[in-house]
Design a protein around this nucleic acid. Structure first.
Length: 216
DNA sequence: CACCAGGCAAGTA
DNA sequence: TACTTGCATGGT
């Protein structure tokens, strides 16, 4: 029988899952909504993103074609609440244009392609970095790609499970090497890390008092 | 008032 | 290559 100790981070995952239960990410009604949300939530509170997505729905702009063709001004005003709205307007349009050109405006073609190829294509878009690309691959396409974010680094470095100084790829590789490659597991784990970071591992509170991860 | 939030790219030396 | 800065709203 395969030993669980082949995958040391499983115990951390189970600890968080026992504490919080399933998180049911990504919070989106459609694949495109997920993709748009991934751009809008860059360095931004999710609550502000929800308002922006509602605004996009109301304006009937949640299609690749509409987002690509709408004026900069109208799109920017719709997503104003998500912050960096001029920047994110360009980023959304860059991404929609790539999807139109490279994937015939069909997200399913992007999702069905080899994840390494999809990732390269996404990273070529100005405004799409590793976290946004990997979020789309995991939560949109359902590929077993571990998503790293500021919370991941803070929680794991504070609990001495990762060094303070390490790159995105190093963190991602650490998780991949210490977990079975299971998209559902990666999905829940990332969302659970966000939950525990918000409750116990805040930037302003250097000590993670009563954190369920104390002891690892 | 200061600080923070599910990043990323461009500028500088 | 390694640091720094701009981007911006809304909640605590």
């Amino acid at each position: 029988m395969p030993s669980m100790s082949q995958h040391p981070f499983i115990k951390i995952y189970q600890c968080l899952y026992d504490y919080y239960g399933p998180q049911n990410w990504w919070p989106a009604e459609t694949p495109l909504e997920m993709v748009v949300g991934a751009v809008l939530t860059q360095n931004t509170n999710w609550k502000n993103v929800e308002v922006a997505i509602s605004s996009l729905k109301r304006a009937n702009l949640l299609s690749i074609e509409a987002l690509a063709s709408v004026s900069h001004e109208q799109l920017a005003s719709c997503i104003r609440s998500a912050g960096y709205y001029n920047l994110k307007t360009k980023r959304l349009k860059n991404l929609m244009n790539m999807l139109a050109l490279q994937y015939d405006s069909d997200l399913q073609l992007l999702f069905a392609a080899d994840p390494k190829q999809s990732r390269r294509q996404l990273l070529e878009v100005n405004g799409i970095g590793p976290e946004t690309a990997d979020s789309i691959l995991l939560y949109g396409a359902g590929h077993a790609v571990f998503v790293v974010d500021a919370y991941t680094h803070r929680v794991f470095s504070r609990h001495l499970l990762l060094p303070e100084e390490c790159s995105y790829e190093e963190i991602q590789e650490t998780f991949s090497a210490n977990l079975p490659p299971d998209a559902s597991l990666f999905n829940e784990f990332h969302a659970l890390i966000v939950s525990v970071a918000k409750e116990f591992c805040k930037k302003s509170t250097p000590l993670c008092e009563n954190c369920p991860l104390n002891g690892f």
